[in-house]
Amino acid sequence: MKSIEIVTTEAITLLKKLIETPSFSGEEDKTAVLIADWFNDNKIPFERENNNIWAYNFHFDKSKPTLLLNSHHDTVKPNQGYALDPFSAIEEDGKIFGLGSNDAGGCLVSLLATFTHFYKQENLSHNLVLVASAEEENSGSKGLNSVLQHLPKLDCAVVGEPTEMQLAIAEKGLLVLDVIVPGTASHAAHLNNDNPIYNAIEIIEWFRNYTFEKVSEILGPIKMTVTQINAGKQHNVVPSECHLVVDIRVNDKYNNQEIFETVVQNVKATVKPRSMHLNASSIDKNHGLVQAGIELGRTTYGSPTLSDQSVLSCQSLKLGPGNSLRSHTADEFIYINEIEEGIQLYIKILSDFLNQNKTTTL
């Protein structure tokens, strides 16, 4: 078996290759080849569907629970603020610059190194399955959600996103609603008591002031925000509809269906969800994965950003090297020592968890 030092060096080399290979959501075919090369070089069988790649540990046992290790290899498109070439993996001052270096290339290669380290270990409490997923950034239909049907029942998961290797034990979900407020079209010069723009005022106020009863200890209250409003095309015509877009950040006390039903019951409008599957996620603070991290001095918190956790039904922990504040920024980078530390901490946390004599009750 390769030493951790060698695997870490190879992981950093892979990260540079991933940066230099464009992989916008839905266009990750070339980075999928690079990940396949990693598995081939380490003599690990894998499966691929679309641009998702997954592999199981050598001693996979159907009688054992299964732990998912997941991160994504797609990126957003570079913004106009880049001074450096986003597709050049520039190493300088202990940093690796480039698009996707922090979100989530550093996490992905660290998890690949970790999985490779554990691949042939025997007598682990859990099976391991690693999924390098596509279409995370656009919540696409051919991402992790499409792979889950091929996997065994998942008992818990570690999702690699930049958390500075702190323990994100909960993550807010997202529900985006299109709200169509009805009214009566007319000439602006005539009396009209059914102007949809005026009707929308009461609805906007409801979204602004309504409070959901359950507040999460980790994620706080649900937050609803009207972010767009559109109505009318001419100054002298009252339109028949007013369109609103509402962004709702959901805590782990509710699922998206419950939120949607509450909105429908309270507003006099047509309400259409853009999607329902991006639910909040969490893991019990007493779970073995979390406790293993706490014993290593890691802190717990709730994450406001969305990840592939939203499509998982099992308890999941968001954990990875890098800083979330660097994600999607110009001249994105990750420190090399963050990757080195990330691999070491992943291995220590999983060693403690996977070598327990008893399995964790979920």
Rank of each mutant, 00 (worst) to 15 (best):
E91T: 13
E92N: 02
D93F: 00
G94A: 03
G94H: 01
G94Q: 01
I96T: 00
G98I: 04
S101P: 00
N102S: 10
A104N: 15
A104S: 14
A104Y: 02
A104C: 13
G105R: 06
C107S: 15
C107T: 14
L108I: 05
V109T: 12
L111W: 08
A113F: 05
A113D: 08
T114Y: 01
F115D: 06
H117F: 14
F118V: 04
F118D: 05
Y119H: 12
Y119F: 13
Y119S: 10
Q121E: 15
E122V: 13
E122K: 15
N123D: 15
N123R: 13
L124H: 07
L124P: 04
S125P: 09
H126T: 09
N127V: 02
V129K: 05
V129W: 03
L130H: 07
L130Y: 11
A132M: 10
A132F: 05
S133T: 14
A134L: 13
A134R: 07
A134G: 11
E135N: 05
E135P: 05
E136D: 12
N138M: 13
G140R: 03
G140W: 01
K142L: 14
K142D: 13
N145A: 14
S146Y: 08
S146Q: 09
V147R: 11
L148P: 09
L148D: 12
Q149A: 15
Q149V: 15
P152L: 05
K153C: 01
L154Y: 05
